[in-house]
Design a protein around this nucleic acid. Structure first.
Lengths: 213, 213
DNA sequence: GCTTATAATGAATGGAGGTTCATATTATGA
DNA sequence: TCATAATATGAACCTCCATTCATTATAAGC
């Protein structure tokens, strides 16, 4: 009985995963709207149309559920970023790709930005129980990916000779602020903000290129 | 008895304020380290060496205490920013002043960054009970101040013709990311990050000025 | 010193919510 | 159809606090 070999999963296992997915989605919605502490397990279960007990059959604890949610999205994002970077040619295009990738991702997972936001600000030890090892690792990988793009660009003389770590921070900080504002003002889609303008600023800065000082 | 006219406060009143200050400081330390929900009123009282009851004589509720703390720092920051902007001459210098002001402020109130971070990411409705009206108003004022700097700069042809709102977001996002990283890595002081470099990037962008495309 | 007003105290209260587990339900297979 | 295993359920349990308030300590006025 049971455990199929290789790819194929038993119906049981497929159902289990589907149920987990449903609960994770319900949780995302609630965590995003009300935060970790203000969301009760009962509410999550209700929203997903399961009992509390079932939820606890699928997840070890509320905290673990929270972590798995973040890990899921972080993984998803990392995969998307890797792919887009791979498709792009040359440092400038790769930076463009990274910006678009992030905007696209958070347009699709708008709610997640509220959750993600908690660890933007370096709030590791904060209330929603600190990120899991796994998350920090993904975060590190994303940064390293981007750093290497800048390193390449600097080597090729395309980017100014700036600490790549700083460059990544500027990239991340800028996109975060823009996404935050965009979500905050409830704009329907990111059309309202032209990604080209963002890139324009990132690449050329705020000063008028024609004038001086 | 009591209520002095004009400036002079009764000893009672002065003590009252001093006690409030002590509690706010203790609360800042704890909220920053553990977040709003994970910090108990008992702990705050202990840290400040008061009884829980006394704390409740001085503050209406835990939530109000939290809000007053944020309002206090936000006020402080707004005053500092106004002053620095006033002292600076011309748009470029004013932007420089704004960057330095922020770096200075969070170097002095490092802990507060963790609390502040919660609302950077547009997490208005999140767990630490949504910002007070007052806070949002201060936040708005800060942004408007900066926007007007950019507007002036654009009018004078010094800055590129970019939506001032966007320019402010870039400024805020960049500095947030840098301060976050700086605190995160536990650097002793902001010397480790040269503000000049930050300004360099903000003004001139990431591309090498000498090369092209 | 005595009386009264003012402030400080911390044990008791009440409510909220994470987790468990005895029971009920459904699926499986003979 | 019945016996057995696997799942689902939600009420009860237990812990943790925010808040209150009767009591005690302190200060002010006489």
């Amino acid at each position: 009985m049971g455990q199929q070999s290789g790819k194929r999963l038993s119906r049981k296992e497929r159902e289990r995963r589907e149920h987990r997915r449903l609960i994770l989605e319900a949780a995302e919605e609630l965590f995003a709207r009300k935060g970790f502490h203000a969301t009760s397990v009962q509410e999550i279960a209700d929203e997903a149309e399961f009992s509390v007990g079932s939820l606890y059959n699928l997840f070890e604890s509320k905290e673990r559920l929270y972590h798995e949610l973040i890990e899921m999205r972080a993984d998803q994002y990392l995969r998307k970023l890797d792919q887009r970077l791979d498709e792009a040619d040359g440092p400038v295009d790769k930076v463009r790709a990274a910006v678009r990738c992030k905007l696209d991702f958070f347009e699709e997972h708008r709610q997640f930005f509220h959750i993600f936001g908690n660890f933007v600000s370096g709030a590791e030890s904060a209330s929603p129980p600190m990120l899991s090892k796994r998350c920090l690792e993904i975060h590190g990988r994303i940064h390293r990916q981007l750093e290497s793009v800048f390193e390449a660009g600097i080597r090729e003389g395309i980017f100014a000779d700036i600490d790549p770590v700083l460059a990544v921070l500027v990239l991340e900080g800028t996109t975060n602020a823009i996404i935050g504002e965009w979500i905050h003002t409830g704009a329907r889609a990111l059309e309202s903000i032209n990604p080209g303008t963002v890139e324009q600023i990132l690449f050329h800065g705020l000063l008028d290129g024609t004038a001086n000082e």
